[in-house]
């Protein structure tokens, strides 16, 4: 039971972080379908930092370094989306999809190159971080608290405050709803959209490193992040683009994802004799059902997905 809660919370943290990323991008008017790729690259940044960080620098500096690395990688990678979609008005769906494919391919190539350079016989795309992972965990009576749970909670609060209580948030949302209006009062729509995309890179990168630290202590980069970027988008839609509701939605989805990890720990579930594949499918099936019921009356930012062209105002 404790394990189920633990997994629910950690998966919810991943989903909430990434969904917040999507939320910032969409409030600025850019649909970020490349979150999956951003997660992979963020995870790569964090994993490389864990690999190369000097031994014995202590838990706190290590955590900070890993987080910074994930953020830097995520932000940098999201700028590819920004350039294409904001400055060159490229189709956001194509570019997002390309980023997802590019993320996995690039991470695989990089990790393999590093592994092969270190040991010519090692052609795997795996990075191990058994010891480093321990720094992120605090054992509280059998419950493994992961610092990312706290970070996700802080992220939700920060997102709420930024969107609804600050000048920046007001301007950001104006750009996603009615960019012409924002422009007419002297707000630079391009800059705000860039901000939205880069923030989504920040959250996406964080979510990525959080994801690969959630269960195992090594990661094979060929595998990507198993559609979590898209699950997060579903969480965002279910959460109606609002940080607090996103947190709730993330918990629900996280629960079903956790179930597939730990169902064998529940005798009554095992007794049902359902194949593991069914549990694996569960989050995706639930997601589809939820979307089917919530998409009809969704209140997406009105101008999302439409490139802003100064000439057309």
């Amino acid at each position: 039971m404790l394990l189920l809660i633990q997994y629910t919370l950690i998966f919810a943290s991943v989903l909430a972080l990434v969904a917040l990323g999507g939320c910032f991008a969409e409030h600025s008017g850019v649909i970020n379908l490349g979150l999956e790729g951003i997660m992979v690259i963020g995870a790569l940044g964090g994993a490389l930092m864990m690999r190369y960080a000097p031994d014995g620098i202590g838990a706190f500096p290590l955590i900070m370094l890993v987080i910074i690395a994930a953020i830097v990688f995520g932000v940098f990678y999201s700028s590819l989306l920004g350039v294409a979609c904001i400055n060159f008005k490229a189709n956001q769906t194509i570019v997002g999809t390309a980023l997802n494919m590019l993320g996995t391919a690039a991470a695989t190539v990089i990790v393999k190159a590093i592994n092969t350079a270190a040991n010519p016989d090692d052609v795997s795309s795996t990075i191990q971080y058994v010891d480093e992972k321990k720094s992120f965990l605090v054992n509280i009576g059998g419950f493994e608290f992961n610092w990312f749970m706290l970070i996700a909670a802080l992220g939700v609060v920060a997102a709420y405050v930024i969107l609804y209580k600050t000048k920046f948030g007001l301007r950001l949302m104006a750009c996603g709803e009615h960019p012409q209006a924002a422009d007419s009062v002297g707000i630079n729509v391009y800059k705000m959209r860039w901000a939205g995309v880069l923030i989504s890179g920040l959250f996406g990168g964080l979510g990525g490193i959080c994801y690969i630290l959630s269960g195992v202590s090594e990661w094979k980069f060929e595998n990507g992040v198993a559609g979590f970027g898209f699950l997060a988008l579903a969480v965002m839609i279910f959460g109606q683009w609002k940080p607090t509701r996103i947190a709730m939605a993330a918990l629900i989805f996280g629960f079903f994802r956790a179930l597939s990890n730990v169902f064998f720990g529940f005798p009554f579930l095992v007794a049902l004799n359902i194949p593991g594949s069914i549990y694996n499918m569960m989050p995706y099936v639930i997601c589809l059902i939820v979307l089917a019921f919530t998409s009809k009356k969704s209140r997406a930012p009105k101008a999302e997905g439409i490139p802003y062209d100064k000439g057309q105002r």
């Binding site: 007001l170 301007r171 709803e177 009615h178 209006a181 924002a182 002297g186 209140r299």
Partner: peptide
Amino acid sequence: FKLVECFTVLDNIIMGVEPN
């Protein structure tokens, strides 16, 4: 009109010159 529909009247008025 260059007004953001899901914002309040006040938000629309101060947008761009927000007191902060």
